[in-house]
Write a protein that binds this DNA or RNA. Structure first.
Length: 731
DNA sequence: GACCTGCTGCGGATTG
């Protein structure tokens, strides 16, 4: 028997709508997703790039399923962004109008009236966020059942954005709790970018589940690639002058000439750099006497300014280029762009893939990526990173891995016990109090989000939370909120699983431009760059947390701090093979090729092929070529054996002891010969382990477990030490 | 440690 074409499986009114919209054919993922979603009895993960029609691949069959039922069913769509919900609402409403299925957006900006309409007749499509769902569980625990009893599907958009985060753990928990309230399994459909291992995305969508994976045909990337190198002269020796910063200007000039007249995206890796380049490019437009076409976009700019940039990109009769952070990495609709620029090393292979995927969407158009790399001029004082041209090699390794279609596997090992604290307090709110055993079953039993946490550990958590007045127990054994817990749960900030810094609002003549984290203090009279323009600080109000500014001219150093991300072992391995290789990098300009040659020369001069340790004066550098999680774990292992070690870019830096290099080798052998220590032992001397929102409410032993699960690859570090020992035994 | 994301209920005033 042959399967009928997917199109014929869709409900009649949906087919009519598609005819009306003049769809010529279904996309590959749609063709394959429709037959598995229509019956409504399987979990499905759809992996494809932006604009390959993932949303329709989920909604067309899900709505078909709804129409084939009694018409009273509900589809819950969960998105990480309000902006995405608003986008989706516009698109879905047109389709659903014809089907007589209501669509309700439900998030923090939606009015009570609109929410009330859904409450009165909860069916159709509900578009919401994890936080709004959390609020429903907390404030209307008793109505969750009546709201959601007819749910046929949960669709999670941008699944990859949830994996490996405390917010993702919260989502898993909410979906699990939802099914426990309703008393049955609800099919889950996850929409994800292409990931290194899609089955891990499935394991995230439903722990211990068995999803159908629908992955987009690996269509070859028609990539046009250019890497340009820029050399920055060193600051003067007396050090009282600002660094010259010629290179960023040269990069801005190249961006200006190669991008004006088309739509593009520029990713300089930090808000600070976004401001710097947006400002330079705006000035260049002024000098050239043309209307500005370069717009900034980042998370601290006000919604209005961001909307202005998105609008500029979308409109047809003028061109625009956005200088942006990862705010434009997710699926917000900004249309196709001609090219993408990456300044400095991309944060990860997966993120670079998402970014470049914004270009070359129209048939026949290539994907254009320009990568700009600044390195300091070499002299006899240059440090190891400069000599090795590390940033250039990291950029190259990341780009090559992308062209080889390798991506970081999603990080699913994190325990995120911070979120266990939240979910436990939320359960108390939902049920008006809960027994410890019931809570343990809901949160930690097989298939639950915190599966694997022992009863003893759970009890230790409850005791600790009680000691902090977060919870208390009544005479019947029922657990309730304590004084502190009551206050926390009854504030709206409780619903988010993640923290954010306290921020100052930047205001000019009554209009909010955006916000700044408080870490940077400002004085009046200072000039700042914000929203691509220069402002004079008139007044800083520490009570209202408002910075009043007025427009001014001239530039000064922008705000925000910069830095790096977490690097996977595979990227470091690829860097090493690039150092060892001889073949030319033929998609780089002369200067970038020069950096490659200089890096390789340094690598061979320092004999890094054979060396494990390198004398750095006061420190010894242990070269591992592992990822950050491996390096950090090795630093912990060495610390536990009495050294003073910390993870750095190429390995672990160890403070020199009287025994010198031999002593360090001894310690590595020691690590290799001993069994892997328990996490408690490993992190016994570590402090400052709190990273997530409720980490402060965890007992030390659980904080250590949670930290280790997120940041340390102990097995990898131990295996590395063993491999060193084995190599020495055989020579 | 880069980047990013999200948020209720209620009371009181104002308006149609």
């Amino acid at each position: 028997m042959t399967t009928p074409p997917a199109f014929e499986l869709l409900a009649e009114p949906i087919r009519q709508y598609l005819w009306g919209e003049q769809w010529e054919s279904l996309r590959d993922v749609q063709e394959r997703a429709i037959p598995v979603i229509v019956p409504g009895d399987r979990d499905v993960v759809i992996g494809a790039a932006t604009a390959e029609g993932k949303t329709e691949a989920a909604f067309l069959p899900a709505l078909t399923h709804l129409l084939q039922g009694d018409g009273k069913g509900l589809i819950i769509y969960i998105s990480p962004l309000k902006a995405l919900i608003n986008d989706q609402f516009g698109r879905l409403e047109r389709l659903c109008e014809n089907l007589d299925i209501p669509v309700y957006p439900w998030h923090g900006d939606i009015t009570q009236t609109s929410k009330r309409r859904f409450s009165q007749r909860p069916n159709g499509v509900l578009l919401t966020t994890p936080e709004s769902l959390e609020a429903l569980f907390c404030n209307r625990g008793t109505t969750v059942l009546s709201f959601f009893s007819t749910t046929k599907f949960v669709i999670v958009d941008e699944l990859h954005a949830f994996i490996g985060t405390e917010r993702g753990k919260q989502l898993q928990s909410l979906l699990h709790r939802l099914e426990r309230v309703i008393g049955r399994t609800i099919p889950r459909v996850g929409l994800s970018a292409t990931l290194g291992d899609m089955s891990l995305a499935g394991a995230f969508l439903r722990p211990k589940g068995d999803p159908v994976i629908v992955e987009s045909d690996a269509k070859t990337l028609n990539l046009m690639l250019l890497i340009k190198g820029y050399e920055e002269k060193l600051a003067s020796k007396n050090g009282d002058e600002d660094p010259p910063e010629i290179a960023p200007k040269e990069i801005a000039e190249h961006l200006f000439t190669s991008m004006r007249g088309t739509n593009n995206l520029v990713f300089p890796n930090s808000r600070r750099e976004v401001e710097r380049y947006a400002h330079m490019l705006r000035e260049m437009c002024e000098e050239a006497n043309i209307v500005n076409q370069f717009w900034p976009h980042h998370g601290n700019l006000s919604k209005e300014i961001r909307a202005e940039t998105e609008q500029a990109l979308k409109q047809k009769d003028a061109t625009a280029t956005a200088i942006c952070t990862s705010t434009l990495e997710l699926g917000i609709d900004i249309g196709a762009v001609r090219s993408v620029a990456q300044i400095g090393p991309p944060p990860s292979v997966a993120s670079l893939r998402q970014r470049t995927g914004r270009s070359g969407r129209r048939p026949g158009e290539p994907t254009i990526l320009r990568s700009y790399q600044i390195e300091a001029a070499l002299d006899d004082r240059s440090d190891l990173a400069t000599q090795l041209r590390l940033n250039t090699f990291r950029t190259l390794a990341t780009i090559l891995l992308m062209t080889e279609r390798w991506f970081e596997p999603p990080m699913t090992s994190g325990m995120h016990l911070s979120t266990l604290v939240q979910q436990f307090m939320s359960l108390i709110a939902q049920h008006g109090g809960i027994q410890a055993s019931a809570a343990y079953g809901l949160l930690c039993s097989p298939g639950a989000p915190f599966e694997g946490l022992s009863k003893a550990n759970f009890a230790a958590l409850l005791r600790h939370m009680a000691s902090l007045d977060l919870i208390m127990q009544d005479s019947s054994g029922l657990l309730l909120h304590g004084r502190v817990g009551e206050r926390i749960v009854n504030h709206y900030t409780f619903y988010a699983a993640f923290t954010s810094d306290e921020e100052y609002r930047i205001v000019t003549s009554g209009k909010t431009l955006g916000s700044l984290p408080v870490s940077q203090m400002l004085a009046s009279g200072q000039r700042i760059l914000f929203g691509g323009r220069t402002w004079l600080v008139d007044e800083v109000d520490d009570v209202q947390k408002v910075i009043a500014v007025s427009a001014t001219k001239g530039g000064s150093p922008p705000l925000f701090s910069g830095g790096g991300g977490r690097v996977h072992t595979r990227v470091r391995e690829r860097m090493r093979s690039l150092y060892q290789g001889k073949h030319e990098v033929n998609f780089a300009d002369a200067r970038a090729r020069g950096f490659v040659e200089q890096g390789r020369n340094s690598y061979h001069r320092l004999e890094l092929d054979d060396r494990i340790v390198l004398d750095q004066g006061s420190h010894v550098l242990v070269l591992t070529w592992l990822g950050d999680a491996g390096n950090e774990a090795l630093a912990c292992l060495l610390n536990a054996s009495g050294a003073e070690a910390s993870a750095v870019e190429l390995g672990v830096e160890v403070r020199k002891v009287p025994g010198g290099m031999d002593e360090v080798m001894d310690r590595i052998r020691n690590v290799a010969n001993r069994p892997v220590p328990h996490v408690e032992e490993l992190l016994a001397r570590a402090s400052n382990l709190q990273r997530e929102k409720w980490d402060w409410a965890l007992p030390v032993s659980l904080l250590q477990k949670s930290y280790a699960s997120l940041y340390l690859d102990i097995d990898e570090a131990h295996a590395w030490a063993r491999s060193i020992l084995d190599a020495q035994l055989t020579t």
